[in-house]
């Protein structure tokens, strides 16, 4: 046996493996070169291009991009009331979607993670994720039908003498909440699953009623999970412009303005495009303080 083994060790593949084993840095650079190239060129490159083009201007007659540096676009952004309004409205929608998602996701996650029998839990998680398999557009248009005047929602509410919200801001928040809810349920499910029973027992043992245990133990311990889920719901809502086109009626969000400016005034669209990027960076910095990013 020991006679044949060295022969195997001399094959090219084995020698290469051995050489790599002795040069951990070379091994690491081979591992990372492809993803790093992609990240730098495609991801950071496009972001840089976005930032640079935001400082260019457009010839008002020809609509051609003029590559002259100027802060004009950002001045326009800050001085035009409509843009500020739309930016604030977009942040408001993203926050509203996040809050509604937390409120709906918590009881669902509490049930799937702590109440349901352990053998059903994986199945329930799959059920929660199933809507993500359906096309975004199909789901958004389905909601258009539901929310239409005389549509399903109006019909359901009519016995109560109520009307559905129709297309508009409320409909946008509803649809975005529906679309991104699984992204909030999942981290809450994981977070709740990881809270040891003994922690809840201990709180109750020390005299806390259920409500008190929820406020003083469950919620604070779950905060990183809530923050993690909110990163998804907030940033996905902030960047969305399709749902609002389909069910938003006349409502304009920052995504719509960027979209409509791309063909008219690309540099202004780029400047507008930096707004959600900056907001999300600020949001991530705030979230980082909760320790949520280390649990992602």
């Amino acid at each position: 046996m020991s006679e044949t083994e060295p022969a195997a060790g001399r094959s090219t593949a084995r020698r290469l493996a051995g050489a790599l084993h002795r040069r951990p840095r070379l091994q690491l650079s081979l591992l990372l070169s492809a993803p790093l190239t992609w990240l730098v060129l495609a991801y950071l490159g496009s972001l840089t291009a976005l930032f640079m083009s935001a400082f260019w201007t457009t010839d008002t007659f020809t609509s051609n991009v003029v590559k002259v540096w100027s802060p004009d676009n950002f001045v326009t952004l800050f001085t035009t009331g409509v843009y500020r309004q739309v930016a604030l409205r977009s942040v408001g929608v993203a926050l509203a979607v996040t809050v509604v998602c937390v409120v709906i996701a918590f009881p669902v996650a509490f049930f799937t993670a702590r109440v349901a029998a352990p053998k059903w839990r994986p199945l329930l998680v799959v059920a929660i994720l199933t809507p993500l398999w359906a096309s975004y557009l199909v789901k958004a248009y389905a909601w258009r039908l539901i929310l239409a005047e005389g549509g399903l929602l109006d019909w359901l509410l009519s016995p109560l003498g109520l009307d559905g919200p129709g297309y508009g801001l409320a409909a946008t928040v509803m649809v975005l909440t529906y679309l991104w809810l699984p992204y909030m349920i999942l981290p809450l499910h994981t977070g709740l699953e990881q809270i040891p029973d003994s922690l809840l027992d201990a709180s109750s043992d020390l005299g806390a009623r259920t409500g008190r245990t929820f406020r003083s133990v469950v919620l604070p311990v779950l905060l990183p999970s809530i923050a993690a889920g909110s990163v998804f719901t907030f940033s996905l809502s902030l960047g969305d412009y399709i749902a609002v086109q389909i069910v938003g009626g006349k409502t304009q969000l920052i995504g719509n303005i960027i979209y409509s400016n791309i063909t008219l005034d690309l540099p202004l669209a780029a400047a507008l495009g930096t707004v959600p990027v900056v907001i999300i960076v600020l949001y991530l910095l705030a979230v980082r303080r909760t320790g949520a990013l280390s649990s992602l």
Partner: peptide, 30 residues
Amino acid sequence: LAPFERDVHTVFQDYALFPHMTVEQNVAYG
């Protein structure tokens, strides 16, 4: 009676300390 209605306290095998509280806050919780 529920646990919070009994004059009995427990030391748990895994200690069950509240991770988001300081030692002082843990002790003062009750």
